[in-house]
Write a protein that binds this DNA or RNA. Sequence first.
DNA 1: GCCGTTTTCGGCCCGACTGTTTTCAGTCG
Length: 579
Amino acid sequence: MRRNEEVAALLEQIAELLMLKNENPYRIRAYTIAAQNIRDLDADIEEIARQGKLDEIPGVGKAIAAKIEEYLRTGKLEYYEQLKREVPIQAVDLLEVPGIGPSRAHLLYEKLGITTIQQLLEAAQNHKLCTLPGFGEKLEQRIAREAARLMQRTKRLLLGVALPVAETVVTLLREVPAVRAIDPAGSLRRIKETIGDIDILVASDRPQEVVDAFTRLPIVKEVLAVGPTRPSILTREDLQVDLRVVHPDEYGSALLYFTGSKEHNIALRSLVQDRGWKLSEYGLFDETGQRVASRTEQEICACLGMDWIPPELRENRGEIQAALEHRLPQLVELSHIRGDLHVHTDWSDGHDTLERMVQAAIARGYEYIVISDHSPSLTVAKGLAVERLREQRRLIDELNERYAPFRILQGAEVNIHPDGSLDYPDDVLAELDVVIVSVHSAFDLPEARMTERVIRALSNPHVDLLGHPTGRLLNTRLPYEIDLDAVLDAAAEFGVAIEVNGQPDRLDLPDIWVQRAIQRGILIACTSDAHSTRQLDNMRWSVATARRGWAEARHVLNTRPLAELLQWLRQHRTAPHAR
DNA sequence: GCCGTTTTCGGCCCGACTGTTTTCAGTCG
């Protein structure tokens, strides 16, 4: 089992504790960077440790290498235990309160013994905070406000909720004459799975007109701030949207800056700095302080001799180096998708009829669709008994005649039992065109058993696709305990494709793992997992997640035309499955 | 704590805002 994640989490905890100690910020950053690099590592950290090559990992020097080595060998790290004795670890929660950083958090627990947000709120309400140096009345009020808001915590927004709101704003504002250019920025533009704030950037030389138009949009429920260039509103859905207006001459540098990620920006500026230049939201400046580029992102990248980096890749996971070497991936696009491989109908828990799903797929320009209703043991979803499955096949045959050349394939989303056996017998699986297997029960098995369970399922030669491999539900349910590296190794061995489920609260397989799957030569299946015609549009989120995992069209099974898909299905089922 | 074809020491991304100050520290994105 890979322990990279475990080590990364440990280093991150150390970074947080050091923050509370108000340590040297660069030392803290060193731990954060080391953690990130270890998390993104392809290789197994234990293997690297065995070879004595820990300090060859970027961001890992002698000191951190020794700590990792100790931890892997003994399962404990004395330095970390020591830190925990010195600093109350619960107090890291305080860092989540806007307005409280390392220094103030340190002061709060040191002077007032505050370690929780609840205590913080009470202290603020009792005017204890303004007794501290550097704290005044306004800060106390702000902290009270923010702490109260955090107590009834608003979860991070799902991409599938935030992006449509942002796009509405963009569409409406684009009509305003003073708006020269407009884009969503931040994690939204990077199409991250969850979004903190909705940030939108506008280029205009008449900012006041833009601000006026923005604060008067029909979707506005409340205007929160009306700065000359930074207004903020609350929509009717209670989502906060922040707008920034910049001069058109600085739009490119501002967009680059406001898109982030923070790690990407730091790495990029570091590179620029190495050349004696400077990069900020106002532009790219040479050694004499002369601005050499700022109007567009492309212009700035060109000045740096690098290719323009799609926002989805801007996470400082090697994209800057790739852009410099002109070897960025040609990312898959929604328009490459030829069909949907995972769709439900009202035969099980879908809302629309099979025929309506077919019509909706045709309306989206697809060549094919895989009907994949649930298997019998998922009774809550009206899973199909074998007889019903065969009945459905007759309907599909009939519809295939009527809608040719569009092709309906019969699949099923087959439950993986806790022991790894499947919910239909092999002869029934053999009748299906596409077999997706998924875990829908016994989520709490220990990691070893869960891993074994899924791998056993994949070893069945009828299985084509593994559905939502981690089982996570964003904001609701953690991924189940599973050794995904071992699962991906098995998928590669058995030639099984892996789903990137496009339901906005799944996005499963997650982006980082998409990249790892591709590196193993595994095919990705972008799917909507639609339970209604409208949800066929979930494909967009699936493709977005695949893009964040560096997927190109050739890595995605359903960018293939029907004939090639059928060929893959045939060939892969007859491939040897000895194990 | 990491890092290095001008460096093994002295840097480490950049600019703005806020509030508490009276020139700046802390925080944020």
